[in-house]
Nucleic acid binder design. Sequence first.
RNA 1: GGUCCCGUAGCUCAAUUGGAUAGAGCAACUGCCUUCUAAGCAGUAGGUUACACGUUCGAACCGUGUCGGGAUCACCA
Length: 623
Amino acid sequence: MDMLSALFQESYFTVFNYSGDKSEFAVMNCSQEFDADFTFVLFPWVKKLGLKPEEIGLKLGEYLLNNNSISGYFVVKGFFNFTLHDNFWMDEIYRIHKLKTNELVVQTDTPLKYLVEYCSPNTNKPLHLGHIRNILLGWSLSNILKAIGHRVETTQVINDRGVAICKSMLAWKKFSNGETPESTGIKPDHFVGDYYVLFDKKLNEEYLSWQNSDEGKTILKNLLGQYVNSLNSDPSVNDEKITSDLFKKYKNDYFNTYSVLGKEVREMLLKWENHDQETRLLWKKMNDWVYLGFNESFKKLNVSFDYIYYESNTYLLGKDIVELGLNKGVFYQLPDRSVWVNLEDVGLDNKIVLRSDGTSVYITQDLGTIKQRYERHHSDKYIYIVADEQDYHFKVLFETVKKLGEPYAHNLYHCSYGMVDLPTGKMKSREGTVVDADDLIAEVIHEATSMAEERGEIAALPKEQKDKICTDIALAALKYFILKVSYKKRMIFDPKESVDMQGHTGPYIVNAYVRIQSILRKATFSIDLNVPAKISRPERNLIRSMNTYDKILFEAADSFDPAHLANYLYQLAKDFHKYYHDHRILNAETAELINFRLMICENVAKYLTHGMNCLGISMPDRM
RNA sequence: GGUCCCGUAGCUCAAUUGGAUAGAGCAACUGCCUUCUAAGCAGUAGGUUACACGUUCGAACCGUGUCGGGAUCACCA
């Protein structure tokens, strides 16, 4: 494609004495409805050259034809459609056929070092669907960047401290009777998560009985009065709704002021911060359970991390930066000793960066960890894969770093992905509507297994091999289902559809590959480079697609979006399925044709494997 | 209320970054397995791209406004 742009650039200079930037000469694939390889749009040139589209097309076409650069052309309206010589496409087939997988992609001429952060869970509950989207994006983006020649390190910061973790710790301490994951047989991260849920349940019970106590009644009555006034008496709201709204709103305040459990949690957090031995031991024990469970989930998803940071080690970082900011005059201090940054000049507000008691807030830590990353990794680009609910936080963070004039200030990227919703609405952990990662994976594997049994294609294989294939197919379905959607968009996840294996799905693409493998197993003679008489339109289109693979990968890398690649692979698989249906391969008419078609098949398989592997999907040979 | 994001077939998503008659899958209906794996192929039906102006050879895409939905705006993380 790039080569074609150059061709038009050169032709314009010769024919019209026009010299322009290469980017002015964009060439596209010709639309399916015409029998041509590529299209060059003439409209923009009508004004620039002062000629009619037909005249431009004619002059251009005759020149290119005489030059032997193209084999034919025709102009429809303002579109210059043209076709390249067969030997160009044949050369492409040979070239691709000779390439090894790691040579398939053109390498970037500006290789950089990336640090990609993704996943970053809390240790109070197991991974859910939101983490899965995050993980798949991070993993496949890293693969894509590596594929085009960048160096990539991956990392996650585990949020292993704070109030939430103390809640599950307290619940376990009070209500577990010493139960463990081993004694109950529950997956350890789920085990801990169950105590987090239990805490909330116990808190609700406590809150409810407090509401009926004299103290509670008086306070809530007062609040109710104020609240009803503030509602401006909307007639559609009934008393019950008002009370339940208030109940929800006030719960947090209750937790912080009247709750006995709340008090115990805060005491526990304080003990933790003061390195109380018993608390730290409990904390370590429960977190270790969670890591055991997380690692099992990561392994199932077939992802890993190069560097793991723990918030318990980094949460005190950043205070030196606050000091630096104050000295530089970038931050200011109020009389109560809290420290702030004014971001009004970039359209944001004043944000606190250090509390009046001198302790850190979220952004203090992040300022610290960014700097630590820079010092330890010296990457060229730092990518944070974090949901779009944190857009504001990252804007503030990055602008603050810019104001500080840090050397890495312009190398920070928030890859902000849309949250995952269910057909029934938002996922809410409190209401138990969260789709658990492990449950989901188990469900797709179950579905893939029963589909495979129905088909019977792999029935004769040993169990171990069958299980591996079914797992691959299941993960292909799940991963592709999520990655095919552009990451910026909020997506609706229907668990029923995620186990679909027909149509625009991962298994559909795997199937194209499996069909090729099946043919290759049956092929009796080895491929040898002979020239066949003619390349058909479907074949030209297949090669043309493979020829644009580089461009797709670079696009995906530039936009941080694996969905470009996912959709490309579907199109390639679709074209192949049709080709397979319309053309006999092993019993084609002549030996040359068999040879030729086998080459095409092998080439397609190469790209499908490479692309799917970039998405983090492994390809079985049979299904 | 301020800021940001989104609105495409009944549903879930695309659209080569401003190009030809807006495409797929699912769901519905109809065909194709004695031939390389039917997790496949072909077909029917489904659209005022939320709405209105504007920019230009050309707009789902850019601009302005309206309507609708979401996120966020803690001395929480």
